[in-house]
Design a protein around this nucleic acid. Structure first.
Lengths: 117, 117
DNA sequence: CGGCATCCTTCTGGATACTG
DNA sequence: CAGTATCCAGAAGGATGCCG
């Protein structure tokens, strides 16, 4: 990454790549959910529901299903009584870790900036 | 960043930080626009319009205005004939560079994965 | 607990036309 | 060129209730 070139072609390719990434990550809550799973490895539906402030169960359900289709998360059902469902990032999804870390850092700074005013 | 702790508290804070970041970046096209400006430094309205595939001038206008409010981009008018308007990232916005780079890398891989199938 | 189905409102965003 | 205004369809998304 450090040796990234910046020819005309590369610009286009990189912009396209970001666009592709956003195609998958564009859900209103997708990135927040990934963040939760980055910081928790395994997490139950109801816990994620609590972690992601503002999301409704309907939306969480839909997003998780979509993310599962995109192979970003893995869903595991444990037949306890009552049922328990665990979500975790796939290896593929885990590759977004550095994106999340950077966003987190930026978010901290952003918060300071906004609150400071 | 490498020495990030992972206590319960830190988890919450990090998730919150990501959430804060997404509050500002949640526009459907925001990140793509930032990507364009990462790879081009200065860019005219009509060029961004062409770079970000699928966006309409109405949406680009709205997004840029919002991003300007959030101090992510700077708008400069040159009174040529006809008018020319240049957009560029602020120093603050430029701090998202590493996020964009990571997304770009991930996007490349993602594309391979999707196309490969 | 972990969802899905339904209803209904709000918002998003495209198409088109117009302005300085 | 760089937008703005209007109109309108369709998607997003909340509230609620039901089910295994």
């Amino acid at each position: 990454m450090a040796d990234k070139k910046h020819s005309h072609e590369d610009c286009k390719k990189n912009i396209l790549a970001v666009h592709d990434a956003m195609d998958v990550l564009n859900g209103k809550w997708t990135i927040s959910i990934i963040a939760v799973l980055c910081f928790h490895q395994q997490r139950r539906f109801s816990d994620i529901l609590a972690d992601v402030k503002g999301i409704s169960n309907r939306m969480l359900s839909k997003e998780l299903k979509e993310m599962e289709m995109h192979k970003l998360v893995k869903r595991t059902v444990q037949d306890t009584q009552p049922i328990t469902v665990l979500y975790e990032l796939t290896e593929y999804g885990r590759k977004l870790q550095s994106v999340i870390n950077n966003l987190s850092d930026w978010g901290h700074e952003h918060r300071k900036k906004v609150m400071g005013k």
